[in-house]
């Protein structure tokens, strides 16, 4: 069973009297442990597709199954649970909470904290070589460090799926490649399913699957 399965997935936006088909009848299957690279021109609907997969938005029509559950129809509370336990998000502009330190940003994800959690947070930060930066505010961190904090935050709840929307978009190419390697490691070393939207050719080296989106539709690639 594919961990992610989209069936005729569509998202339309109404702008005035113009209908935008941001995602238009997408059929997609991602197996557990895959690394899916999504490519496509700007405005083609990549981010929209990722939001639908991640349960951050609901489709206009079609189905999206995560572990066999159609999340298009479930309640907000259940969707929140799925977001918290199954998904880890990494954004282009990091989206860290500016008033919280690196460690606190990671900690924020944990709903019911135990005495054990502090150690877990530090372990994840250490895993991403951030142990020296744990108590810094985001504004004091470099872009690469901020993105690594975001990855640590995505990992703390040990989700099955990591979704990254242009995680290297705000980074220089060298740092970008570091981040891609970290995400690729999550797949290879930790068996996570990773979906990366990217313009970077570097991702293709690690990708098990590449889809290209144009005008909301998947066009077959190699």
């Amino acid at each position: 069973m594919p961990i992610i399965k989209a069936k005729n997935l569509s998202k339309r936006y109404q702008q005035g009297n113009k209908t935008i088909n941001a995602v238009d009848g997408v059929n997609l299957e991602v197996e557990k442990g895959d690394l899916l690279a999504v490519i496509g021109p700007s405005g083609s609907g990549k981010s929209t597709l990722l939001m639908l997969i991640g349960g951050l938005d609901r489709p206009t029509s079609g189905e999206i199954e995560i572990n066999g559950v159609n999340i298009a129809k479930i309640s907000d509370a259940k969707l929140t649970n799925i977001r918290r336990n199954t998904m880890g998000y990494v954004f282009q502009n990091f989206n860290l909470i500016p008033t919280l330190t690196a460690a606190q940003n990671v900690e924020a994800v944990i709903a019911k904290r135990t005495s054990h959690d502090r150690k877990r947070v530090m372990a994840v930060l250490q895993q991403l070589s951030l142990d020296q930066r744990a108590h810094h505010l985001p504004s004091l961190l470099s872009g690469g460090e901020q993105q690594r904090v975001a990855i640590a935050r995505a990992l703390i709840n040990e989700p099955d799926i990591i979704l990254a929307d242009e995680p290297t978009g705000n980074l220089d190419s060298k740092t970008g490649e570091d981040i891609i390697r970290i995400l690729a490691d999550l797949k290879t070393k930790h068996g996570k399913t990773v979906v990366i939207i990217t313009h970077s050719e570097y991702v293709k080296k690690f990708a098990t699957k590449v889809v290209e989106i144009r005008d909301g539709k998947i066009t077959p690639t190699r």
């Binding site: 991640g54 951050l56 907000d76 509370a77 929140t80 649970n81 977001r83 918290r84 336990n85 998904m87 998000y89 954004f91 989206n95 860290l96 909470i97 500016p98 924020a108 994800v109 709903a111 935050r153 709840n157």
Partner: peptide
């Protein structure tokens, strides 16, 4: 608002 969106993305409930 954006921060609130982030909190939602990382699994915060509306109540919280």
């Amino acid at each position: 608002i954006r921060e609130i969106g982030t909190l939602k993305a990382i699994g915060w409930s509306n109540t919280r």
